[in-house]
Design a protein around this nucleic acid. Structure first.
Length: 417
RNA sequence: CGGGGCGUGGCGCAGUUGGUAGCGCACCUGGUUUGGGACCAGGGGGCCACUGGUUCAAGUCCAGUCGCCCCGACCA
């Protein structure tokens, strides 16, 4: 992408009331735009990052046999009445509206009911199970207080996967696969080291559920971690009885602030009972389908990455989620510099490196470097008259370290390693 | 939903005892610059959140409404 053609631009000032690091950096760098409180648009650079995150999640969901679907945001009350969740007293985050003819509609805050209801059309026999469906879909939640930039919004994309199993054992096994997939996902997204599988209350159908909590001072949640076992317990269930089950005592845990980037839990028959989702087993008996639910908010993950990967100059994107792998910065507008930059730009693209090229003229070096640091691509390659003379490229990694000078012919090898 | 703060060009801000709105950034034109957010000259852009009141006169005073942010409560 030629930066001169990128329609967004960076800004030096910020709306005064943006306080969170994630919204400050993402707005300043032009990754997102704010529509109103808790409602953000993703612009070209931000959209690329969001898609990177989504694609990592998608690959790992496919790897555990998830089948991707896309359900509707518009919901009719009939779907939600059997489980009594149409009631605003029971589900207080509904956005409700109506059809021209006056019938009620809601914008889905989650999808257990509609999916369970839909699966009744396809699940009849034990031969139809297990089934795993997931989607990246926009949820609407009428939060009383949106806050923390893109960490807690009123409209957000969520990856929600639901498992439909024959019995508890099948669910338990899948649950473990999903948990491992989640660990993989957060590793790939660059926050694995600081993300803890956190025990949380399990509800009626299991002892525990699990949250994936990323350590961050700006987090809303408090968790208690044990570094040695790399486990954590969330605040609600951090009681002696639970602690003892891990063979540990209170002193073995440290209190930390964290952001919940994912959660998985066993629903059991809560929704299959409520909406009568049953199957017939080998003996001809009708049984309820055993369900599980597995969520990740890609936007919240993006905000969490920014919160945990930045310095005073801007964002430092982990490799797999960066909008572009390489940022070429051309200094000077001489023909030779632009020609050399373009040659490099083409070569990188041909070799599979996603590249942003700062080809803007009449901009001082300082401004270009500042923008490059702010945008935060992992590798910056500077093309200047001096470097051309020496037949070399000047490379600097956003994550730190010294500038390196790489002979022109070696640049692809260098970037590949 | 409770408490606090704030609404003035796109963004950041100033605007005195009420007298008809200004600065910086950004933007447009021309020129000079180019290794860490350059400079000069010229230019465009504002129902001062909204509604109603007080007044000869309201960005400024009064009332209400709406919106935004922070803290708390809430949060599959």
């Amino acid at each position: 992408m030629r930066q001169s053609r990128l329609f967004t631009k960076t800004s030096k000032t910020l709306p005064k009331d943006e306080v969170s690091i994630n919204s400050q950096l993402l707005l300043k760098s032009g990754f997102i735009d704010k529509e109103f409180a808790g409602v953000y648009s993703f612009l070209p650079l931000g959209h690329r990052v969001l898609n990177k995150i989504i694609n990592v999640i998608r690959q790992e969901m496919n790897a555990i046999d998830g089948q991707e679907i896309l359900m509707t945001a518009l919901q009719s009350p009939q779907t939600w009445e059997p489980t009594d969740r149409w009631d605003d007293a029971k589900m207080d985050v509904w956005f409700k509206t109506e059809l021209k003819n006056g019938s009620q509609l809601g914008l889905a805050p989650t999808h257990e009911e509609p999916l369970t209801k839909m699966m009744k059309k396809f699940i009849n026999s034990y031969k139809d199970l297990p089934a795993y469906a997931y989607q990246f879909q926009t949820k609407f939640r009428n939060e009383t207080r949106a806050k923390s930039g893109i960490l807690r919004t009123r409209e957000f994309i969520m990856k929600d996967l639901y498992s439909f199993c024959r019995d508890q054992a099948e669910l338990d096994e899948y649950y473990e696969r999903a948990k491992n997939a989640y660990i993989k996902i957060f590793n790939r997204l660059g926050i694995g080291e600081i993300t803890y599988v956190t025990y949380a209350s399990g509800g009626t159908f299991s002892k525990f559920s699990h949250e994936f909590q990323t350590l961050c001072e700006y987090g809303e949640d408090l968790i208690y971690i044990n570094e040695e076992k790399k486990i954590a317990i969330n605040r609600e269930i951090f009681v002696d009885e639970v602690i003892a089950e891990f063979g540990l005592s209170r002193n073995d845990f440290v209190e930390k602030k964290a952001i919940e980037v994912g959660n998985i839990f066993k629903l059991g028959t809560k929704f299959s009972d409520g909406l009568s989702l049953q199957y017939v087993d080998e003996k001809g008996e009708r049984k309820p389908v055993i369900m599980g639910s597995y969520g990740i908010g890609p936007g919240r993950v993006m905000g969490t990455i920014v919160e945990t990967h930045n310095d005073e100059k801007g964002i430092i994107w982990p490799k797999e989620v960066a909008p572009y792998q390489v940022h070429i910065v051309s200094l000077g507008k001489e023909e030779s510099i632009m020609a050399e930059s373009e040659k490099l730009y083409r070569m990188l693209n041909e070799n599979g490196f996603e590249t942003l090229w700062d080809d803007r003229v009449n901009l001082n070096p300082g401004a270009k470097f500042a923008d490059s640091d702010l945008i935060g691509c992992p590798v910056r390659v500077t093309v200047s008259g001096k470097n051309i003379e020496n037949r070399q490229y000047e490379v600097k990694r956003r994550s730190g370290g010294e500038v390196e000078f790489i002979p022109q012919d070696n640049i692809i090898d260098y970037l590949n390693k």
